[in-house]
C-alpha cells in the first residue's frame, strides 16, 4: 500500500511544481493540439474535410490538429462533446447541413446561440440522379411520370428529417409525389439506384463521382439557383420554378464564449487553408463552389438563414 501513497505523493508533488512554474505565464494560443471533432465516422465526406484541413493547417499554426471521430445521432453526439468541452478554442467541430437540420426539427438538443461558427468551408448543391439505363431520360419526364402516377416513383434518400427529406417534402407540396426510401448507409443507397431498386437518388455529386464518370448514373436536376459548369445540360430547380436550394454545407464551429481573438485566428487560418491549391482541388472534386469560404461573421448569418429556410420548407408541407 505504501507504494500507492508514494505514487500519489509523487504525482501531487509533480503537479504542484509545474503548477508553480507554468501557470502564471500568459498562455500563447495555440500551445497544444487543437482537436477537430468529426461527428461522423471515419472515411466519410466530413472526415475527409477534417483530415485535409488538419494537414494544411498544421504548418500554419505550428500545432497539430488531431481528428476525433464522434459518430452518432446525426451529429448530435459530436455536438454534445464540443459543448461539454471548455470554450478555450482547443476543440472545434465539423458542422454540416444535416446536423443543422436538427435545429429545424422538434426538440433540438442545442441552440444556434450555443455555438460560434468559425468558417463555412464547402457548399455543395444536391442532385437527383437516375441510373444510366433508366427509362426516365430527364427531369421533364420524371415530373410527368410523378404527376401521372403519384407515389409510385421511388427516390433513395438519407432518412426522414434530413435535408434530403425537406427537399422531397417541398416537391410533394408542388404536386410531385414520390415514395421516399430512406437508406442510412451510403453503399446501400448507391446500389439501390444502380441496381434499379429505386428510380432516383438524392445525393451530392462529389460523393458519387466515380459512378458519374463511369456512366452508371446521370443527373437530371440540380437543387440550386444556377446550373453548374460541369453539368451544363442539367437544369437547376430555380429555373424550373421550384424555389428550393438547401445546399449541403460543411463548416467549422467552436463553443460559444470562445475568446474572439482565438476565433479570429482560427477563421483566418481556415481562410488560408481554403486558398491552398490542394484544398481547391478537393473542392473541385466535390463539385463545390470555388468561393464557398465564408469567414466567422458571415458564417454566422449563413447558418441562421439556412435554419430559417429549412423551417420554411417544413411548414410548407402542412
Amino acid at each position: 500500500m505504501t507504494s500507492i501513497k508514494g505514487a500519489v505523493a509523487l504525482a501531487g508533488a509533480l503537479a504542484a511544481a509545474f503548477c508553480a512554474s507554468i501557470a502564471p505565464a500568459q498562455e500563447k494560443y495555440p500551445s497544444r493540439p487543437v482537436q477537430i471533432i468529426v461527428p461522423w465516422g471515419p472515411g466519410g465526406g466530413a472526415d475527409q474535410l477534417a483530415r485535409l484541413t488538419a494537414k494544411l493547417a498544421e504548418p500554419m499554426l505550428g500545432t497539430s490538429f488531431p481528428v476525433v471521430n464522434t459518430p452518432g445521432a446525426t451529429g448530435a453526439t459530436g455536438m454534445e462533446k464540443l459543448l461539454t468541452d471548455q470554450a478555450d478554442g482547443y476543440s472545434m467541430a465539423i458542422y454540416i447541413a444535416d446536423t443543422n437540420a436538427l435545429l429545424a426539427g422538434p426538440k433540438p438538443r442545442w441552440k444556434l446561440s450555443d455555438i460560434q461558427p468559425v468558417a463555412v468551408m464547402m457548399q455543395v448543391p444536391s442532385f437527383l440522379f437516375v441510373a444510366q439505363n433508366s427509362p426516365i431520360k430527364d427531369w421533364a419526364q420524371f415530373e410527368k411520370e410523378a404527376k401521372a402516377k403519384p407515389k409510385t416513383l421511388k427516390v433513395a434518400t438519407l432518412g426522414y428529417g434530413s435535408v434530403d427529406d425537406m427537399t422531397m417534402q417541398y416537391l410533394a407540396s408542388k404536386g410531385i409525389q414520390i415514395v421516399e426510401v430512406p437508406y442510412a448507409k451510403p453503399s446501400e443507397r448507391y446500389v439501390s439506384v444502380i441496381g434499379g431498386h429505386v428510380d432516383a437518388l438524392y445525393e451530392q455529386a462529389g460523393d458519387v463521382r466515380q459512378f458519374i464518370n463511369n456512366k452508371q448514373i446521370r443527373p437530371i436536376i440540380i437543387f440550386g439557383k444556377e446550373r453548374l459548369p460541369a453539368f451544363k445540360d442539367v437544369p437547376c430547380s430555380y429555373e424550373l420554378g421550384y424555389k428550393i436550394a438547401l445546399p449541403q454545407f460543411r463548416s467549422y464551429v467552436v463553443k460559444a464564449g470562445t475568446p474572439k481573438d482565438r476565433v479570429k485566428l482560427l477563421s483566418d487560418t481556415l481562410q488560408k487553408v481554403s486558398a491552398n491549391p490542394e484544398f481547391q482541388k478537393f473542392l473541385e472534386e466535390n463539385y463545390s463552389a470555388k468561393d464557398s469560404f465564408l469567414p466567422a461573421d458571415k458564417a454566422e448569418t449563413y447558418l441562421a438563414a439556412q435554419v430559417d429556410d429549412m423551417k420554411e420548407a417544413m411548414v410548407k408541407k402542412q
Binding site: 504542484a16 503548477c19 488531431p66
Partner: peptide, 14 residues
Amino acid sequence: YVSLPLGVGPFKVL
C-alpha cells in the same frame, strides 16, 4: 489521436 481528458487545475498543467 484520441481525445483523452486532460483534467482540471493542477492536473491539467501536469
